[in-house]
Design a protein around this nucleic acid. Sequence first.
RNA 1: GCGCCCAUAGCUCAGUUGGAUAGAGUGACGGACUACGAAUCCGUAGGUCGCAGGUUCGAAUCCUGCUGGGCGCACCA
Length: 571
Amino acid sequence: MLTWPEKYQGIFVMKKKLDLILKETLEKCFNKGVLEKTALPDYVIEIPNNTNHGHFATNLALALASSQRRPPREIAEIIVEHLVDTGDLLEGVEIAGPGFLNFTISREEWYRLLLEIASPEKDFGRSDQGAGKKILVEFVSANPTGPLHLGHGRGAALGDTLCRILEFTGYDVAREFYINDAGQQMRLLGESIYSRWRQLTEPEYPFPENGYHGDYILDLVKEISRSVDLKSLPEEEAISRCSELGKHTMLEEIKKDLEEFRVIFDVWSSESALYASGSVEEALEAIKEKGQLYEKDGALWIRTSLYGDDKDRVVRKKDGQYTYFASDIAYHLEKWKRGFSKAVNIWGADHHGYVQRMKAALKANGLDDSWLSVLLIQLVKLWKGGQEIKMSKRAGHYVTLKELVGEVGVDAVRFVFLTKNHDSQLDFDVDMVKRQDSENPVYYVQYAHARICSIFRKAASEGISLPDRPQEVLNELNLEEEMALVRLMAEFPPLLEDIARRLEPHRLTYYLTELASGFHKYFNLGTKEPDKRIVTDNVSRSQARLILAEAVRKVLVNGLCLLGISAPERM
RNA sequence: GCGCCCAUAGCUCAGUUGGAUAGAGUGACGGACUACGAAUCCGUAGGUCGCAGGUUCGAAUCCUGCUGGGCGCACCA
């Protein structure tokens, strides 16, 4: 039976303890009169980039400099001199640079954290930061007029990973796909299909202006003519059948492609349903009651300009038709009514101009600015053989998500889509991603996992496994590389919370690459120096290193899982 | 014309409430396996953080102006 420690002594606790020590120390200095009593300044306790700067560093002395009217280094010395050392947390403190305080945490404290990570019961990195908060993430939301392209894929990877991280950090998350299935574009889809069908027998039959040119339209023609006898219908009815069935088929396809991409939505909501249920009218009525609507030139306007938009916007046209904006407002008010404490939209960068007006419309309805966050994703450019593959949706020739996934695999596509900030353009080099070597960032991380699994197999073959009493072997861990790994893993939970707060999932790929790198580096020590291998002839040392390896493995698994990427045991 | 975003190594990009010597991958060059997986590791080279001011103990990060790029400014969807 394993005996693991129950109490979590992680990095939060360390930081909190340290902060307490600092506050008590200051109090002491004030009371003794060695420092002038002032309000607490804004200071930071952080993990320094440079390992020479200790495990934690604070700028407290620098922050005090102006109110104390003394040089920061002098203040730092006073603080160190009066440091209230309560427990066994600290191993050392140094004054450095202009007056930073660098703290070293005791080894025992790090061992406690390591056991916490490796513990089989604990989902390391999971937190309850978002407890009680319901958050709605709307993403992809592709029009059902064609297959998903790379931009949708990027949005899908971003949105899904964000959702996974939000869930892991305690939020109640709903993944939602909004179907723009009202209005002109559905009509155009129907006409495009119908026209292609007619052209089978009448090559001269006109194709609609702005119609959809892709080859998939021909597939839809085949599909539809199998179940419907278009010939027997009047033209108008045939087109509307084509529109209806085309949409249905496209949606099924989109759903299938997304599932293949490991993205499952909780809710599929539809624009046309908003009209059918009267939600659009209802929403406008509510806005009207707030006095935010007015008529001008025969159209109905909303006063978004009062709330940060450049100008007021039309919600109902002169011809009586509602604008797209009207249903969008209704949709977002619906989201609000469903009780979400926050909404996140992931939109293509071409919807840029929409953000401000959407927020303004919500504000006009009394909603807070920060309730809706919109993440805009920039273009994906595809490179192959050193050439950019130009795409044009209009002309109907573009690489679909399905094709790319078929070529390089889900793992690689998801990973690469998340290696960049959503706000910057992304170059996807197919050749690089297809190569099964170091140039491929996904393999780098997955390989670290497979390698650890391999080490466990090796250890097992020599009769070595994780110890029953891990506490008793841990002091075998004292290499700098080993402690660096522990410290790096300690940053995982706060990183996830930060990602959840700032909606920046791409940071996870960087972190995992860094962790994998730390492990590869550590592993390679053993090629030169056999006593630095994980599996050595010293059993307790091997066991200690297996605990470390297991901890790394768990963080890698959790991280990859959050990215929606597999963690293979062999490659 | 107005608004938003971006500008960091040859290339692609990280750099997160302003912190110490600005990082990684890739490309180039040179090294490391008869023993835990070389899909790995180590080393060298590479920078006026677009330009110019400002704020302060301290700026890639905040402010202003400029230059260069992207996107958006519909009674389209």
